[in-house]
Computed example of a mutant assay.
Amino acid sequence: MKFVQPIRDPVKLNEIKEYLKEQNPKNYILFLIGISTGYRISDILRLKVKDVKETHITIRQKKTGKVKMVLICKSLRRELDLYISNMSDADYLFPSRNRNGRKPSPITRNIAYKIIRNAAAEFGLKDVGTHSMRKTFGFKIYLKMKDIALLMDHFNHDEEKVTLRYIGLFQETQDDALEDFEL
C-alpha cells in the first residue's frame, strides 16, 4: 500500500473542491465530509441521510469499534442540506448505481479512491488517496489549533510524533526546530 499525503496547499484544496462540485454533487460531498470530519473512508461510505441531519456526525468506527462524534461545521451544513433535500432518511449518502433491483448499497472504497485520485491528478497532486482526506483534516486542524493532543485522541494515536508524521508535519517540525539552531 502506498503512503499518501495530506493536501497541504489551500489553493489546490479549493480547486479540488470546485472541480468535484462541478463534476458530481455526490463526489463533492464525499470530499467535504472527508476533509471536515477526519473519518476513515470505510466509515464515511456507511453514512445515511439520517446520520447527517443533526449537529454532529456520530459513528462507530469500523476499524476500532470506538464511537466518534464530530461537529458539522456551518459550511458543511449548508452543502449537506442542499445535497440531502430530496433524499429519505434511510438513503445512503453515497449510493452506488442500483443494478437489477439489488438492495441499495454505498459506493465501494475502490470507487471512492478513483474519485479522489482522479481529482487530485487533475491538479498535479501525487500521493493522494482517500486517506488523504483524513490526513488533510488533521493537517488543517493542527495548523489552526496547534493542539496535538486533540488530534492524537481523534486519530487514536499514542505518541505525538506518530500524529505529526501522519499529518505530514514531523519532518517539517524537526526542520523548523533546527533552522535557527547554533552551536
Score class of each variant (00 low, 15 high):
Y83M: 03
R60V: 09
K68F: 07
H56I: 04
N100L: 12
K66E: 09
A90C: 11
Y92G: 06
G65Y: 06
V52L: 08
V70N: 01
Q61A: 03
S75P: 07
R78G: 09
I84T: 11
K53W: 04
M69K: 15
N100S: 13
D91E: 09
T58N: 04
N100Y: 12
A90G: 14
E54I: 11
T55G: 10
N86G: 13
A90I: 10
N86Q: 14
K66W: 01
K74C: 08
R97H: 07
F94I: 08
I84Q: 05
R77M: 07
N98R: 14
L80G: 04
Y83D: 03
G65P: 01
R78P: 06
R78W: 09
N86I: 10
K68E: 08
D81N: 15
S85R: 13
D81E: 15
Q61W: 02
H56Q: 06
I72D: 00
S96G: 14
T58Y: 02
T64R: 02
I59F: 00
L76M: 08
K63E: 03
R77T: 05
I84K: 07
S75M: 08
V67E: 11
I72Q: 02
I59W: 00
M87A: 10
L82K: 15
R99H: 11
C73L: 14
T58Q: 12
Y92S: 07
R97C: 06
T58R: 06
S85Y: 13
V67S: 01
N86F: 12
H56Y: 15
V67D: 08
S88F: 01
R97F: 01
T58D: 05
E54H: 15
L80I: 05
K63S: 05
K53M: 11
S85Q: 13
K63P: 00
S85M: 09
R99N: 13
K66C: 00
Y83K: 04
K53P: 06
L82P: 14
V52C: 06
K63I: 03
R78L: 11
L71F: 14
D81V: 06
L93F: 03
E79I: 02
K74P: 10
I72L: 10
K66D: 02
V52R: 02
D89A: 12
I84Y: 04
I59T: 03
S88R: 12
P95D: 08
L93M: 09
P95V: 09
R77A: 13
M87S: 12
K66V: 00
I57H: 00
E54R: 15
V70M: 10
L93E: 02
K66Q: 06
D81R: 12
D51C: 10
V67M: 09
I57A: 03
N100E: 14
P95M: 08
F94Y: 02
F94C: 02
D91I: 04
K74D: 15
D51T: 12
M69Q: 14
A90D: 15
V67A: 01
R97L: 07
S96M: 11
P95G: 08
K66G: 00
L80W: 10
I57Y: 00
L80S: 06
I84C: 08
I72K: 06
K74Y: 11
T55Y: 15
I59G: 00
I57Q: 01
